[in-house]
Nucleic acid binder design. Structure first.
Lengths: 348, 348
DNA sequence: ATCCGGATTGGCAGCGCTGCCAAATCGATG
DNA sequence: CATCGATTTGGCAGCGCTGCCAATCCGGAT
């Protein structure tokens, strides 16, 4: 009867895989198969505009028969706005960024958006490059991490006219939407907590602060609040590598070698603190009697340690989700401070 | 002189942000500004075909002056193959999948490809949906996790004619490219190791095996190899939740309540094992004398514990990178077994 | 039977770019 | 100064879809 269906595997009878010679099926093929116009097929597939029930059935039957998959590349080009959101994160090694992704992609999906992800390795030049690369997909919005960007990145972001959400930091001016919490205040809160508990010989173990600006802000806040309490860091150890359990363990070891009478250690994050805890366990240092430990992020693992880690819980998943929703909603520029929660734990 | 440059912020003098009225800059604008043809601009920007040095300079100047960002949506539609690879992973909560992403995106970027990521939450129906969604971007290839897919997913994958790489499992037939290692063999090796060390009352602590098929294969291999050694599991605990430190800690606690004389615990992965280790620490159970622990994945954290975790290191980053390279290379279907490495550690 | 308003439908011009092909240009040669 | 091959360039037809607009259809009112 109809030749349409024979076109499915046009010029390629060899079945599975190797569609080399197979012409891809387009909306026009579906229209021909269903004996309706192209725009009708388009309307039915997007449930947009009006069409009769009978037409819907015919189109859907044709789609099923041909195994048609709409081409979103073409769809996006033809329509005005894209349904894409670009997400730029510094790292995939630290679980906080997958957390952020998780919140964002879940919310995005609900709104019918797709996300494209790029990783900068904490390098601002790479950030500029990946922002350029993401912008070339003409996204409806961009989610980036932190407020610090090099001038090229800022220029591109601004010039593109694309909505931008900056995440996980509220200490400074934002470009558009800002969702997060104050890293500075988190550092301060940590210092006040340790000082209030009576610790006096406090040290810092951190990773590369020139790249991780948020960790640098926590460090600054911590130092300042310590100063206000009449205290000062009695020692610090910065490892050159990214944060890790290993860096925390070795960092604490080095610091203790130099400052044996340390009574509390503030770590740049929970991974580092976990490493420090392992060092204490391995060397029989009583926590927190001999040495108190304080982290940052509030990872699950800290809660499950024999002694729950004293730390600050940050709403990472929520930040991703909130940013995604705000971008989709298209409201005005805004700063959303989600706050953080100090967890007393048992290590400090 | 030339009106081109005045078009940059056409109809919008108010500067920064809110490009509402601003007409996006297209390749045609650049061509006009540089006083060359569109195809010349296209050639220069892609360094493809031939053009004089003088022309290159003029085009680049025009691009810089206008702040032009190529539109890859249009570029992809116009050219034949896309430079997109879709990546489907079950979860972002477990660090192994970000590891895989890391390897894949790094390799992909080097080859000039962009990746689009989707998460299934270990749900085969969601996998089918996200595969469909990714296919609508007409990717050059797809990276999926595992070999088990529901019939709809397989059909879509096959029908699309797109290259597919299935990762982290070699125990079964693949669709096209397969990169990973045998989970079954990993389970067997773990069992042989424990049996060889003289452990006799061995238990299993795992998460939801109906969803995580690879963990199920390790479990099966473990049981079988135990059987060959004349042993059997003396108890097992399956938590309904996804794997986590918490699940491991509570799982071991429950199991020990039921089987107090357990002498070794095999966990579905390192996160679970870490939880188990914490339980032992918290309750003063000597490891490995009173209870031996064995994990899976070879996470960094296991290596840094006071006693390094006995586990199996899996090449996750390498698997991602290898799959990406094979997809880009476009060679024939293949199975690449990257193997795994048993780490003796000190907990078993 | 005729007319009317709303529901439904099809045609077609782009979206911004690439790929093809023909035209123009250049430089060296006869 | 004409000629020829190689290099460089521009024009334009799509890629597959959406959005607009005009055409058609339908059922009830006149």
């Amino acid at each position: 009867m109809d030749e349409g269906i024979n076109e499915v595997f046009a010029a390629d009878e060899e079945g599975v895989r190797d569609g080399a010679g197979r012409r891809p099926i387009t909306l026009a093929d579906v229209a021909r198969e269903a004996r309706v116009g192209e725009s009708t097929v388009s309307r039915v597939l997007r449930s947009h505009g009006s069409f009769s029930e009978k037409t819907r059935a015919r189109v859907e039957a044709a789609v099923a028969r041909l195994g048609y998959v709409p081409n979103r590349i073409a769809g996006t080009l033809a329509s005005t706005g894209s349904r894409l959101i670009g997400i730029v994160i510094p790292s995939l090694t630290n679980i906080v960024f997958p957390d952020l992704l998780r919140g964002a992609t879940a919310a995005l999906e609900q709104e019918g958006f797709q996300s494209v992800i790029a990783v900068t390795d904490y390098d601002q030049d790479r950030e500029e490059a990946v922002v350029g690369s993401l912008l070339s997909w003409r996204p409806a919005g961009l989610i980036v991490t932190g407020l610090e960007h090099n001038p090229g990145t800022r220029r591109r972001l601004l010039a593109s006219g694309v909505r931008v959400a900056e995440l996980l930091d509220t200490d400074g001016p934002g470009l558009d939407i800002v969702v997060g919490y104050s890293n500075r205040a988190a550092g301060e809160a940590s210092a006040r907590h340790l000082a209030g508990r009576g610790y006096r010989r406090i040290g810092y173990i951190g990773h590369d602060l020139t790249k991780d600006r948020r960790a640098a802000k926590r460090y600054a806040g911590f130092r300042d609040a310590l100063g206000e309490a009449g205290l000062a860091l009695v020692g610090e150890e910065r490892v050159a590598s990214p944060s890790s359990v290993e860096a925390g363990r070795h960092g604490l070891e080095s610091l203790l070698a130099r400052v044996p009478d340390l009574d509390a250690a503030y770590f740049s994050n929970d991974d580092m603190a976990l490493g420090g805890y392992f060092h204490c366990l391995a060397h029989g240092l009583a926590v927190p009697e001999r040495l108190a430990l304080f982290g940052y992020n509030g990872l699950d693992v800290g809660r499950l340690m024999p002694q729950p880690l004293a730390t600050i819980r940050t709403p990472r998943v929520e930040a991703g989700a909130t940013a995604a929703r705000l971008l989709c909603a298209g409201g005005p520029a805004a700063v959303v401070d989600l706050g953080f929660e100090l967890i007393e734990g048992a290590t400090a």
